[in-house]
């Protein structure tokens, strides 16, 4: 493999890794606070792409506005999912909320099939994202450059919120000790809703960037990005935001590099992700970069 091809893959991997990082945040934050694996997160991700698709297809909004509307809708969806499916089960055994999360994922997928249809739809790619740069042999699509920039921008904002604001402090307090935080008078439901909002918002941004990169959307599309991102969250030490970012990068690079270096084994790339997931859960459940 020449250096150029390697660089091209590296940029691709980083860009994909950013997407996983964006999605992984949602898993990790919800888990950190509720000890709940939000199985529906991947499907919220999927819904975001459909929101954007219809904002353009039905209302012919300009793409910037359409994406913005999709993000807002996805945030509302995330909050609604929490309100309907998780909040009533806060005091129930954890297995109940796990069932509820599975049920919600199942529901969103089927809702999407009924409302949007099961066939893949082509996602509109504005020209801005469709250019190809050629820098001495390396061909890079503008999406691959924009993705990391946008992602890093939002990840910085997130870090600021979590570590520098009062809301972030409340979130960290709840994730440290749910009961004590309750006693200290933190408004639990509001903070949790906000957590879902942030997680879903970032997932929506990730989803739109994803759809720009792989411009085909369908009801089950959330599953694999969802699981890879989830693996990223576990690898990074679930509950840890920095860990989720690092895990996301690692998974992104890994999937791209497997395809690049072992093209015959490309069919197994998701199997590798699951093997990694199982391995980490079994032997290092606190994650590779586990901190908090």
């Amino acid at each position: 493999m020449s250096l150029n091809v390697f660089l091209q893959n590296l940029i691709n991997g980083i860009s994909l890794g950013c997407l996983f990082a964006l999605i992984a945040i949602g898993y990790t934050m919800v888990y950190g606070i509720l000890r709940l694996i939000n199985f529906a997160h991947g499907d919220i991700f999927m819904m975001a792409t459909f929101f954007a698709y219809y904002a353009i297809a039905l209302f012919s909004l300009p793409w910037g506005l359409a994406f913005f509307a999709a993000i807002i809708l996805t945030i509302l969806l995330g909050i609604t999912v929490d309100r309907i499916a998780y909040r009533p089960l806060r005091d129930a055994p954890r297995i109940s909320s796990l069932c509820s999360a599975i049920g919600m994922s199942f529901f969103l997928q089927n809702l999407a099939i009924v409302v949007f249809g099961g066939r893949p739809k082509p996602f509109f790619r504005p020209e801005f994202f469709d250019q190809t740069f050629v820098i001495s042999d390396i061909r890079i699509q503008s999406v691959s450059l924009i993705t990391p920039l946008v992602s890093i921008f939002f990840l910085l904002i997130l870090t600021y919120i979590i570590y520098r604001t009062k809301t972030g402090l409340a979130m960290r307090a709840i994730s440290k000790d749910f009961d004590t935080a309750k006693l200290m008078g933190i408004n639990l439901n509001q903070t949790i809703a906000l957590t879902f909002a942030i997680g879903s918002g970032l997932a929506a941004i990730g989803a739109i960037l994803w759809a720009l990169r792989y411009p085909q959307i369908f009801p089950f599309m959330g599953m694999f990005p969802g699981w890879r991102a989830f693996t990223a969250a576990i690898i990074g030490g679930i509950g840890s935001i920095r860990g989720a970012m690092l895990g996301g990068f690692l998974i992104g690079l890994m999937t791209i590099m497997i395809v690049a270096f072992f093209p015959e084994q490309a069919g197994y790339k998701d199997a590798f992700v699951f093997v990694l997931l199982i391995f980490v859960l079994l032997y290092k459940p606190e994650g590779i970069f586990g901190e908090e």
Partner: peptide
């Protein structure tokens, strides 16, 4: 016909059971 309707109905039943008949 509305494809996927069956599964949607089942997922709604599932959610109702999970939330109301724990």
């Amino acid at each position: 016909g509305i494809p996927g309707m069956r599964m949607l109905i089942f997922s709604i039943i599932l959610m109702v059971v999970i939330l109301f008949f724990k």
